[in-house]
């Protein structure tokens, strides 16, 4: 079984722990981190807004990319240690949801964590990124709660149907 474990910064520990518990021993695991290039683009775009200034050599976009690559490698290494099993490490860059779906294309199962509101059960527990991945993943999915799942009481009570008009 080829399993893809997509980790993000704030929930990677829980994701890796659950993957270690629920994936079969013989699973061929790939740990995936996707660095969003959004912030880098924003930083560069702001510089272009400064009309007439030549970007100084030490402030080019490359250092930003190096910083983001290094952070991704470090995260993957820490996740690998926590997993405690052989795994392939994969670092991608770009638009996160598309990269995850692309990486999942050759997999049997994708493990990911909810990335939205963790206080109550419901559709908002998936943020836009995980929502896209869940909707588009071309394989099975193991979707985990990063901490303990909220109680059933967080589901709002069903609304009463509107009163019917009196019939004659």
């Amino acid at each position: 079984m080829r399993a893809l474990v997509w980790i993000i910064e704030d929930t990677w520990e829980a994701t890796v722990t659950e993957a270690a518990v629920f994936l079969p021993r013989d699973a061929d695991i790939t740990l995936l981190h996707v660095a969003s290039t959004e912030a880098e683009t924003l930083a560069t775009a702001a510089r272009h807004g400064l009309l007439g200034r030549q970007p100084p050599a030490h402030a080019a976009a490359e250092p930003l990319r190096a910083i983001s690559d290094q952070a991704a490698q470090q995260l993957l290494a820490e996740a690998h240690t926590r997993l405690g099993r052989p795994a392939t490490l994969q670092a991608r860059r770009g638009r996160v949801e598309h990269e995850v779906v692309a990486a999942a294309a050759s997999m049997d199962i994708l493990v990911l964590a909810r990335d939205g509101d963790r206080a109550r059960l419901g559709p908002r527990s998936l943020g836009p990124t995980a929502r896209f991945v869940v909707d588009h993943a071309p394989c099975r999915i193991l979707l985990i709660w990063p901490d303990v799942a909220p109680a059933l009481t967080t589901i709002p009570p069903p609304r009463l149907p509107p009163p019917r008009p009196p019939t004659r």
Partner: peptide
Amino acid sequence: TIVLLTPVVFA
């Protein structure tokens, strides 16, 4: 701020 501080904040 744009040229010198932004990369530091990013890092």
